[in-house]
Design a protein around this nucleic acid. Structure first.
Lengths: 240, 240
DNA sequence: CGCGTTTTTGAAGCCCCTCAAGTGTAGTGG
DNA sequence: CCACTACACTTGAGGGGCTTCAAAAACGCG
C-alpha cells in the first residue's frame, strides 16, 4: 500500500511504477510527531525535506503583536520545498496541527533523486507549481472575497485536495481543524468564522463537526465560493 | 552592462562571471510590450519563460463579479516560473503595467541551462524560493495587518526589491503604480489607499508621486509595517 | 468527574467600503 | 495655445461587515 505522498504524485501522469517504488523507499526514515509541535522554526537552517504521511500541519508566521497567520495547510501527501536547503534560514514556521507521521528525506538523497530520476523531478516541479497556485488562490480569497465566500472557498480547496489523495468518503472528509485554526488561516476571527459556519449549516450547505467536514450541497458551496479548481492542476480533472 | 535579471541573480553568491555571461546570452530574444498588455492569460498553455528586463508587470486574477486581485508584482530582473511548462494551462494572467522590455527563454533552452549549469540552476531555485516567500508575506499582510501597516509593508518590500537590483537612488525609487493598481494588490479600495497615503504623507513618512516613491523616514515606515526583510533572502543583507 | 479548550451567542464599535462629486493631470487634436 | 477627453486623485458622508469584549454552554480528555 503506497503512502499518501506517492499516491498524490501518481496523480501526475509521468510517475512510473518504478519511480513510485523509489519514492516510497526514499520515505523510509519516518517519525511520529505530537500535535502542536514545530517541525522547523523561523530562523532555523533548513536541513532535510519533510513529507507528511499522516496528520496535518501548517506553515505559519507570528506577528510582533502576537497574532498568527497560517499561510498553508499541509495534509497527508504534501511535502515541503524540494530546494529549501538553498536558503540560509527559514522565513516561517511549520508546525503540526494533529499527531502526525512525518518522513524526512535528507538533502543529499533529494539531490540524488533529482539528478537521476527525471520523472520524479518533474513530479516535484508539479507539486511546487500547485503549491504556488494555492498561495495565489489564498491571496485572491483574502483580498477580494467576503467572509462566507472565503470560508466556502477554503473548504472546497481542502475537500478537493483530500479527494486527490483518495481521502474522502462520499461528500465528507476528515478535517481536524478547529475554528480557531481556520480563522488564523482565513484572516478572520474565530468568532466570525463560527457565525459563517452557522449560516452555512442552517442553509444546509455544509457542516463542520469535530474532525470532519460534511458537504451537503457542493454545487451551492462552489457557487458561493466562486470556486474553480484549475489552480490545483489535477490531470484530467473533472469539474467540481 | 548586465541586464537587471543577471544583476539580480548575482546577488546570489554562487553565480560566477561565466554563468552571468551565459544568462545574459539566454536573454537575447527580446521584445517591447506596451503598457496594459497581457503577456499570458489564464487558460493559455505555457510556452517560453518570460524575463522582465525593463518596466513592470503583475500576476493577477479576475473574479466572476469583475474584481481584480493582483498576486505579484514583476519588476526588472524578475522572471516567471522556470518550470511552468510542466502545467497544462495557466491559472492566472500576467500583464504589463508599464511599457516593458521582455526576454523570452524557450523551454528547450531553459532545460538545457538547468541540465548543464548547476550554478544557474541554484540561482533559479533561489529566486523561486524568494517568490514563494513573497507570496506568503502577502498572505500575512492581507490576513493580519490593518490598512496602514499593509500599505507600509508593500512599500518596504518594493523598495528593498528595487534596491536589490540597484534601482534606487538614496531614499527614493521608481514606482510606476497607480493607487488603483496598489489597491488591487492590497485587497483594499483605491479610495482607502488614497486616505492611507494621505496620512503617511502628512506624517512625513513617505510620499508617492506619479512614477516614484520617496521615503523620508524609513525606520518609522518599517516599524508601522512590522517589516522584516528576511523573507527576501538577500545574501549578507543588512537590516533596513 | 473536573478542567482546559473550543464553540456559541450577544452587544457595541470601528475599520473599511460604497456612493458621489469635484479637482487635478497628461495626452490629443484643432 | 487652448479646448477636449480620459483617467487618476482627492475628499465627504453614510453604512455595513467584521472585530472586540464578554460570558455561558458544550466538548474532549486525563
Amino acid at each position: 500500500m503506497a503512502n499518501a505522498f506517492v499516491e498524490k504524485l501518481r496523480g501526475y501522469a509521468s510517475l512510473t511504477e518504478a519511480d513510485a517504488t523509489i519514492l516510497e523507499a526514499a520515505c523510509s526514515t519516518q517519525r511520529n510527531v505530537a500535535a502542536r509541535h514545530d517541525l522547523i522554526r523561523e530562523g532555523d537552517k533548513p536541513g532535510s525535506v519533510f513529507v507528511m504521511l499522516e496528520g496535518w500541519a501548517c506553515r505559519y508566521k507570528i506577528l510582533p503583536e502576537g497574532g498568527r497567520q497560517i499561510t498553508a495547510f499541509l495534509m497527508p501527501g504534501d511535502f515541503c520545498d524540494m530546494h529549501v536547503s538553498v536558503l540560509q534560514e527559514m522565513d516561517h514556521n511549520i508546525g503540526t496541527l494533529t499527531p502526525a507521521r512525518v518522513a524526512s528525506i535528507p538533502r543529499a538523497r533529494m539531490e540524488e533523486l533529482i539528478d537521476t530520476h527525471p520523472g520524479i523531478t518533474r513530479a516535484f516541479w508539479w507539486t511546487q507549481l500547485v503549491d504556488e497556485g494555492i498561495l495565489r488562490a489564498w491571496i485572491v480569497s483574502m483580498g477580494r472575497r467576503k467572509s462566507s465566500a472565503r470560508v466556502a472557498h477554503l473548504m472546497c480547496e481542502l475537500y478537493v485536495r483530500m479527494r486527490n489523495v483518495g481521502a474522502t468518503t462520499g461528500d465528507s472528509c476528515e478535517m481536524p481543524l478547529s475554528q480557531i485554526v481556520l480563522a488564523d488561516a482565513l484572516g478572520l476571527t474565530s468568532v466570525h468564522v463560527n457565525r459563517v459556519f452557522r449560516k452555512l449549516r442552517l442553509a444546509k450547505i455544509m457542516e463542520l463537526r469535530t474532525g470532519s467536514l460534511i458537504i451537503s450541497d457542493i454545487e451551492r458551496l462552489a457557487q458561493i465560493a466562486g470556486f474553480d479548481d484549475n489552480y490545483l492542476h489535477r490531470r484530467g480533472a473533472a469539474a467540481v
